[in-house]
């Protein structure tokens, strides 16, 4: 791994410099992760007196559990919808800002601030807007003859968390798309214009293909976001309900561990999630390495 060609020769100093980071990593990351792996292979008796080593039983039970498979399905629907909706809107907005030049900065400012809103606050904002008794949107929808109550209707609940989660992620995707668009050399679009391509054709044949690294990168990031960073949104809007309709994998780890106090199952779920994160991280890093070569 890379260092400087000249280095300092001290023997102890580098360890001192690394110590705080390593100690915290060991105590709060690696140790708990190992604990999770360990207890995912164990069963605690109901009184917590005794633990038995049960190999993969927790895993096999989870994978046969309808509630778990349901939350797996929910997570997939949620992650795909958030990714597509949020990235689509962001790309549209980024393309527009990239077109307008001068007032672009103002639009940018007006579009990026939701990044700083806490997920749980995002949840509250949307929950309030869609509140079945006093919310503004249900009132409008009633005018169209649609009855909104995400407390009863599982599909509406899913739609609500998708909308809230996408809203928050627009700012992030927008910034990366804008950065990607601005790095497309002007000479290319100019050459295409001289070749007679109109604005739409230029976008789809020249700009969009050149954006593909950014798009791919955001794809990974958005799936990651939808899976792991939306706990607050779900907790504030639906708490996984109604009838488990919006229970995602991460929310279920929390619910089973802290509310249901099922240690073995929660740990096994944690380990599965860690494996998913590792796969996503590896994919992301392979992509970064590839991008460096450009």
């Amino acid at each position: 791994m890379q260092t400087k060609r000249t280095i300092f020769s001290n023997k102890r100093l580098p360890y001192l410099l690394l110590a705080p980071q390593l100690v915290i990593t060991l105590v709060f990351f690696i140790w708990p992760a190992l604990q999770a792996v360990k207890s995912s292979f164990e069963r605690e008796d109901p009184f917590g007196f005794k633990t038995t080593f049960i190999w993969f039983e927790n895993y096999t039970r989870i994978l046969q559990d309808a509630a778990y498979l349901n939350s797996l399905g929910n997570t997939a629907v949620f992650a795909v919808s958030v990714t597509v909706l949020s990235m689509g809107l962001s790309l549209l907005l980024a393309v527009c800002v990239n077109r307008v030049m001068r007032p672009g900065r103002i639009y940018t400012t007006l579009l990026v601030w939701p990044y700083a809103v806490a997920p749980v606050v995002v949840g509250i904002l949307w929950w309030f807007m869609f509140n079945p008794s006093i919310g503004f949107i249900p009132y409008i929808l009633r005018g169209f003859g649609i009855s909104w109550n995400h407390r009863i209707d599982g599909n509406q609940a899913m739609l609500l968390i998708i909308l809230a989660a996408s809203w928050k992620q627009i700012s992030y995707n927008f910034l990366f798309f804008l950065a990607g668009l601005q790095s497309v050399p002007n000479s290319l679009t100019e050459a295409a214009a001289i070749d007679g391509a109109g604005p739409f054709k230029r976008f789809w044949t020249i700009v969009f293909p050149l954006l593909s690294p950014t798009t791919f990168f955001l794809l990974i990031i958005n799936i990651n976001y939808a899976m792991f960073d939306t706990f607050g949104i779900i907790d504030a809007t639906t708490s996984g309900g109604p009838a488990q309709a919006t229970n995602t994998l991460v929310y279920k780890v929390y619910a089973d561990g802290f509310v249901g106090l099922n240690l073995g199952s929660s740990s096994a779920q944690s380990v599965i999630l860690m494996l998913i994160v590792i796969v996503l991280t590896v994919v992301q890093f392979r992509y970064v390495e590839r991008r460096v070569q450009y």
């Binding site: 280095i7 690394l18 999770a36 740990s267 944690s270 991280t281």
Partner: peptide, 28 residues
């Protein structure tokens, strides 16, 4: 800026924290 034994190991240990968001290992 230094070269020392276990340097790469230390780097990987830090790297691992990236893979373990707090939501995932919340209970332990």
């Amino acid at each position: 800026y230094f070269r020392f034994p276990f340097r790469v190991l230390a780097f990987w240990m830090i790297f691992i924290t990236l893979m373990l968001p707090v939501e995932v290992r919340i209970l332990p």
